[in-house]
Design a protein around this nucleic acid. Structure first.
Length: 561
RNA sequence: GGGGGUAUAGCUCAGUUGGAUAGAGCAACGGCCUUCUAAGCCGUGGGUCGAGGGUUCGAAUCCUUCUACCCCCGCCA
């Protein structure tokens, strides 16, 4: 719609230039905005304001000439000049109502686009190390990351989702020692308990399963417990598999899927880490100091240089990170998005610096990052910190068990990633209009309920009759809904471009509000069949858009509540 | 001390990338169920957009200085 109005203006500008009213050397960027106030029409352009200076004319005069030069169009009912020189477009009923037909014809794909042109994009998110259950912060990463994947897929990108984890480093040794201690019957309060060992109850569960010879089938790990407390390597392998399976269950309960699980250890096995070191040294960006090998990341914008190889010969996490991203690049991903907690912010400059130092023709801003701020959990007005299972943090599973998957996902994705998030358990649990998840789902269920009611009356909805009678939708509530529905494709495209899924959540709340207001003001199942079918068409369009929007957030659209 | 983030109604947060009189929900107050699900609707009140300066036709939005809070600043990940 914006595009079509833009073309009308463009033609009017050419006319004015031809008439000599405007200089020929102008190159205006035609901007069309949705109006905030419906008394300003449906769409507005500031073109006269932006051209006023270069044309040396008062903006309102310019606007008047532009309006006069606009070619007639069935889309536009009339135009007005307002304020300092805005041109307001009042669209015709036909053009506003056409959206209903578009939605019903396109169904689940309405709102989708081909903007990505099938290009590949890889999204890495969660990437938790297998040292314990996923916590709320991982949950936010999962909700945002998965929703980004859905948004990018809906806008024409070919998306690969990936989960990267360290299965071998110092933290995993610590995990193995903790499980081994439990196998030996120790508890965290014993003197012999490993220093900095993991104290959560889940460690005991891992030990029990290991000693019982249990078999673990995770997405990417398959191990049987050796039942030998002294075999630390077997304990380690088992613990990693066990906790990966736990995380799989967490992610499954959260309806989050990954195309690939990438192991840090594979970078050592394939020689990618060594190769990366060789290239960095060969490119002259390294030096040795105090027995360690440093990368001069300050050459690439870092505030200090970083150690790559420790004095003891082991690598810091930083180096495999660079090797991993080189691997992504070599796999052909020209676009990569990493979704991480903001506490890992310092890795952004570092990884990019490492990639530049490779001199592999990787663009400076590659990869992209989406960083989410911290999550705190509140209950009864107080911060919740301790989980029995995990010991020191609130697990994602606890939340899903308590408030449900839909509410958990919605709340974690409904705020901009850069805002700190307070997860209010009482609010997420409340079954009232306090709770936006149910508010939106209820709108969807209400439409389904109307359709059921119609069937109970022995009637059925005739879509063709409804679409042919759309001009009967003349109530203000109906016009507001039409305007709202028309915006959905822009909202999806915008959320995908800015990598901000919360825009979809906000839109759905507004759409549901418009629908509930209409529902209460006007009955759908009226005697007049043409009006009834038209209202059913509008209802069905609302239902479809809510379903499509909720799907982008990974939230279900129930047919009844 | 350095880097990043945030600051908008009593609370939680939006604000279409610089547009017209800054919005929503909650909380407060007052209404609406014999009528398609009241997990709903209607109405009222509520603001120095953290503070100062700047850019311009026009700023919550861009630049600058300052203040407060959060995160990071390890040869941990």
């Amino acid at each position: 719609m914006k595009e079509q109005i833009s073309q009308l203006i463009s033609q009017a500008l050419e006319t004015l230039v031809a008439q000599g009213s405007l200089p020929g050397d102008i190159s205006p960027r035609i901007q069309i905005d949705r109006t905030r106030d419906k008394s300003h029409g449906d769409l507005a352009s500031n073109i006269a304001l932006t051209l006023a200076k270069s044309a040396g004319r008062p903006p309102r005069d310019l606007a008047a000439e532009l309006c006069a030069a606009l070619p007639p169009s069935p889309l536009v009912e009339r135009t007005e000049i307002a304020g300092p020189g805005f041109i307001n477009f009042f669209l015709s009923d036909d053009s506003n109502q056409a959206i209903v037909r578009a939605i019903i014809e396109q169904g689940a794909s309405f709102g989708h686009s081909e903007a990505g042109k099938g290009q590949q994009v890889q999204v890495e998110f969660v990437s938790a190390n297998p040292t314990g259950p996923l916590h709320v912060g991982h949950g936010r990463g999962a909700a945002v990351g998965d929703s980004l994947c859905r948004l990018l897929a809906a806008t024409g990108w070919n998306v690969s989702s990936e989960f990267y984890y360290n299965d071998a480093g110092a933290q995993i040794d610590n995990l193995a020692l903790s499980v081994q201690a439990r196998c030996r019957g120790l508890t965290p309060d014993d003197d012999q308990w490993p220093e900095d060992g993991y104290r959560g109850d889940y460690i005991a569960d891992v030990a029990t399963a290991y000693m019982a010879g249990a078999t673990i089938d995770a997405e990417d790990q398959h191990v049987t417990g050796a039942a030998d407390a002294e075999d630390l390597d077997a304990v380690r392998k088992f613990a990693v598999a066990y906790l990966r399976r736990e995380q799989d269950l967490d992610l499954k309960a959260f309806a989050t899927h990954f195309d690939l699980y990438f192991l840090e250890s594979s970078l050592y096995q394939s020689g990618a880490v060594e190769e990366t070191v060789t290239r960095l040294v060969g490119n002259g960006h390294t030096y040795e100091q105090e027995g360690a090998l440093w990368l001069r990341t300050t050459d690439f914008g870092d505030d200090k240089d970083r150690v790559m190889r420790k004095r003891d010969g082991g690598y810091t996490y930083f180096l495999p990170d660079v090797a991993y991203h080189l691997n992504k690049w070599q796999r052909g991903f020209k676009r990569v998005i990493n979704e991480q907690g903001a506490d890992h912010h310092s890795t952004v400059t570092r990884v990019r610096a490492g990639l530049q130092a490779l001199q592999a023709d990787i663009p400076e801003g590659w990869p992209e990052y989406v960083l989410h701020q911290m999550v705190t959990v509140m209950r009864d007005g107080e911060e919740v910190k301790i989980s029995k299972r995990a010991g020191s943090y609130v697990t994602l599973r606890d939340l899903i068990d308590e408030v449900g998957r839909d509410a958990t996902r919605y709340f974690l994705v409904a705020r901009g990633p850069s805002s700190q998030l307070t997860f209010d358990i009482d609010l997420a649990l409340s079954q009232s209009n306090d709770n936006p998840v149910y508010y939106i789902q209820y709108a969807h269920a209400r439409v389904c309920s109307i359709m059921r009611k119609l069937a109970e009356q022995g009637e059925s909805w005739n879509p063709e009759s409804g679409l042919d009678s759309l001009q009967r939708l003349q109530e203000e509530h109906e016009k507001a809904l039409l305007r709202r529905l028309d915006r959905f494709p822009e909202v999806v495209a915008g959320a995908a471009t800015s990598l901000e899924p919360h825009n979809v959540a906000n839109y759905l709340k507004d759409l549901a509000g418009d629908f509930h207001a209409w529902y209460n003001a006007h009955k759908t199942l009226v005697e007049d069949k043409a009006l009834r079918d038209a209202r059913l068409a509008l209802s069905e369009a609302v239902r479809q858009v809510i379903a499509n929007g909720l799907d982008l957030l990974g939230v279900s659209a129930p047919e009844s509540m």
